[in-house]
């Protein structure tokens, strides 16, 4: 899975594709860290449009990301979560700590 990045003004969008699991760990972290380090970007959107599968390690990566976003005083939202992705996020009750759109 190679995440693509799209910066539009203050919003940085990370579009994920395929399986989002531990094998995506490195690329996901790199892409997000670059966006967080970018002073122009104030809000990060993780786009699940093309994600077919999400496992518990992916949830762990999201928690880590949230921690870093908070430390950088930026905001984060999970967007375009459908079917399988929404289900996993719901079981983990991530709606309580993440903005999901």
């Amino acid at each position: 899975m190679l995440p693509t990045v799209d910066i539009n003004g203050e919003v940085g969008r990370v579009v994920l594709t395929g399986q989002f699991d531990f094998s995506s760990h490195r690329e996901f972290r790199q892409v997000c860290e670059t966006l967080i380090a970018n002073p122009e970007v104030k809000e990060l959107l993780i786009d699940f449009q093309n994600v077919v599968y999400l496992d518990s390690s992916a949830l762990g990566m999201l928690l880590l990301l949230k921690e870093k976003i908070n430390a950088a005083n930026k905001s984060l939202a999970l967007v375009n979560c459908r079917d399988a992705v929404r289900q996993v996020l719901e079981i983990a009750c991530f709606g309580k700590i993440f903005t999901i759109r």
Partner: peptide, 11 residues
Amino acid sequence: FKSFSLPLGVV
């Protein structure tokens, strides 16, 4: 009984 809470260790 659906999951109604975050897992342990998150908050």
